[in-house]
Each structure stands twice: as structure tokens, then as C-alpha cells.
Amino acid sequence: MYLDNEECNTVVSQFKRRLADIAPGSENPLSYAVSQRDKSTLEMVKDAIEYKQTLLAYQPVMRAGDHSKVAFFEGLIRVMDATGRVIPARDFMPVIENTETGRQIDVLALRAGLLALQDNPGLRLSINMSARSIGYKSWNQMIRRFLNRDKTIGERLILEITESSAMTVPELVADLMDELQPFGVCFALDDFGAGHTAIRYFKDFYFDILKIDGEFIKGIADNADNRALTAAMISIAEHFNMLTVAEFVENAQDAAVLTEMGIDCLQGYYFSAPTTRPSWLHNPAVRASG
């Protein structure tokens, strides 16, 4: 007895699935592997939230005019896996950012940052958020509770929203700014240049800080094209009275070129890696200097 072509293809397909451990309905081993990895990542983050294994790592943003002085710190969310390893946001945020878990992470990052501001009266701190959290009940309740409790917190809080996230719901971002800026809260447009911001939105937004994406910063001392693009972004920021921050500054040459170009602040491993144990966290006498 012989199988016809259709029956033969079915048998071969089933055999390949068993060998690759691919779920029925999936014919692409790579797609299956990616989906399994994403599922594992999501479960890891959910476990970290359930068992309170989240924390912030802090990285200083330095003044370009004096590289020894901190303008403010950025608080970067981290989770710990089952072995106790600290996992940076870049390894899990793309998987969870459009899920309920992503909103929960935003709330935890905000809470940790607000507590740090509450406990360290001289600290200025930026916290990352996504436009997905605008209108999220827990996030809104959290920030308003702290702002009403301590009037100085708003004056020292910076909320960072990525360019791509802001462009998904620009009207909601503008509304959030209207609500929180009377408390003194500043807003930073993060990863500028990596997305597709419509320039016309600049007149509607009230961003105080423009953070230029590291893609244009790394190796800028030896890249004339990136210098031209960065100069254009600095010019836009100056027109709208925005403070400029260069991200991913990794060497002295790039730092010197950026300073000469007129950038306001510098952030990157050349100055300091993010740390979960900054000296001021346990020693309030050590402050950011601005």
C-alpha cells in the first residue's frame, strides 16, 4: 500500500513536529522557539511581581559643563529571576510592554522611585513609564497619593516616556502633562530619533527634556553623519526650550565632542553603570547636586 502525496506530506509534517517538539499548528521552529522564550520571560516577570522581586537600578546623568556633577539620576526597573540574578529591563520589557504585566511593572517602578524621592529630600530622579499606563488606575492612584503627601516630590520627579510610546496616544500624553505639571513634575522624551515623532506635536507637548537615542551618540567623535543629526536634534530642543541629554556615552572622546556641540547632560557607562546600591540610598547626606 502506498501513500499519496498529500498523505505523505502529512506524515512528514507530524514527524518533524515530534522531533522539534513543536505545538500542532506551528510549522516554523524559529517562531515556536521565540514564542516559548517569550512565554518563559512573561512567567519570570509575573513571578517576580508576585514575590516582590523587583527593584530599581540608578544611573547618574551628568552635567556636560562639569562632568563631576550630577544633574539627576535615572531609575531603571530590574527584576530578579528564580536564581536571584538581576535582569535588566531590555531583556523583558519588549515581551511585556503591551500586557497587563507591563502596566504592573510601571506601577512598581513608580512606587520605588517615589519612595526614593520621599526618603532622600535632595534627590532628583527620572522614572520610565509607557503611555500604556496613562489612565491605569493603580498608577494614577500611586502618583497622586505621593504628590499630595509631599509637595516637594513633584518638583524632583521626571517622567520619561519613549518617543515611540508617546506617538501611540499623543493626546493622552498631552493631557497627562496638563494634569501633573502644576505639581512641578517634569517630562522627558526618551530615545528621541529612534521613533517617528511628528514635529507638529512639539507645539502640543510640553516636554522639558530631550534624550537623544544612543544610536546617534555611540562613536559620535568618529561619525560625521551622527554629529550632523545630533546637532539638528540639539537645535530642535533649543527652539522648544528643552534640556538635552545624550544617552550611551561610552568614552572620553564622545563626551568631549558632545560637550563642544552644546549638549546639556551626558549619561552612559563612561561615567557610571546603573547600580542597585547607590551611596545615597543608605546615606541621605549624599545628594544629587542640582
Rank of each mutant, 00 (worst) to 15 (best):
S138K: 12
K203M: 03
A82R: 15
T162C: 01
K151Q: 14
P278V: 05
V286L: 12
E7H: 01
F248E: 11
R287G: 01
D254G: 06
R85P: 00
A166E: 01
L19D: 09
L56T: 05
E43P: 00
R287I: 13
V245E: 13
Q118R: 15
V11N: 03
Y270H: 14
K39V: 02
E163W: 07
A252W: 06
G84N: 08
P278E: 00
T230K: 13
D190W: 02
A246K: 07
M167L: 08
C8V: 06
T168R: 14
Y58F: 15
Q267I: 04
S235V: 03
N128K: 09
A198F: 02
E6Y: 06
T10I: 11
P60G: 07
D264T: 10
R145Q: 14
N9D: 11
L30N: 04
T197K: 04
Q14P: 00
A20K: 11
R103G: 05
D150G: 05
D21K: 15
I134L: 03
L258F: 02
Q104F: 00
K69G: 03
F73R: 10
L117K: 05
I49F: 10
Q53P: 00
Y2M: 13
A112W: 06
G184N: 04
A82V: 12
M93Y: 08
D38T: 04
Y201L: 01
A23P: 14
I209F: 10
M93T: 07
L30D: 05
D225F: 14
E50M: 07
H67E: 11
G290N: 10
Y32N: 14
N241T: 12
